[in-house]
Amino acid sequence: MAAASVQTPPARTDWAEDSEPDLATVLPPPQVTKNKDGTETIVTFFINEDGKKAKRTQRIRRTIVKKKENPRVAERRAWPKMGPEAGKPAGPRSDTTTLGENIIFRPVMGFKSGQQQEKAPEEDKKADALKKMQIKCRICSGDHFTTKCPFKDTMAPEGEAGSAAVDMDGGMGGGGEDAGGLGVGSSSYVPPHLRGKTGSGTGERMGGRERDDLATLRVTNVSEFAEEEDLRQMFERYGRVTRVFLAKDRDTGRAKGFAFVSYADRSDAARACEKMDGYGFGHLILRVEFAKKSTT
């Protein structure tokens, strides 16, 4: 039932400790490879601005710099490393230390949060590379994002069903583009948020709200007095919930016993699935699993 990308965290103790969902568990650790010219290639995984898992590949060279320091500091520098670092060679280890993307941080008067954080010039190359990103719809392989596919509602992708009502209030903001199937297809489509815009574009795209049906869970054995809000709050712990559909009896308004919860991110859904399955709610124990495409 659990998706492959979730790692089980070590030695979990008191469940009461957890007050916030953990993002750290989900990403794979960085990978390092040594290159022939003495440099190293490091691949780190992170979640980008749009909430998608992304990887950063860096080629680095290690250099030794001599600095003058406070004598006590110098002394500490000379201490042998201890604990898990004992015996390891000098210098930052790539499994624990990586360099992030260069940020130009300059305090300004009248700072407005709408301004984009400037990236250093070499980052423009990266931005260019992203511009050439090929878009392919997962559903019909057309050159549009999956969410914009005209067949979205008729040909749901790969075995996950989305059912019924759209919850318009769910998950506004940051609706990332679902760039299904990168790298294939030779269209020259440039997604709007990457087109060269004059001035500070807003990019306030709430339309591309994503209801990734791969991240929809079916929750059964739901108490008949349950409400959508209860479910939303329970499941929000694990990530952004874009939609909650609680099946209700039309006449009485009571819950019929099952619900669908859609997440923005599949890994959130996976984590929620794992954690909420077996959760006691009301007088019943919930069953949570990934929603399968209905056979209609």
Binding site: P107, G170, M172, R237
Partner: peptide, 30 residues
């Protein structure tokens, strides 16, 4: 952590360190 639905910011939440001028109480960067 749970996305604040009432904002219209397209960015993923507000995970920024915010810098303010201590005396003038004005935001100067993030």
């Amino acid at each position: 952590a749970a996305m604040d639905v009432t904002t219209t910011s397209a960015r993923q939440g507000k995970f920024e360190a915010r810098f303010y001028h201590k005396v003038f109480e004005e935001e100067i960067g993030r």
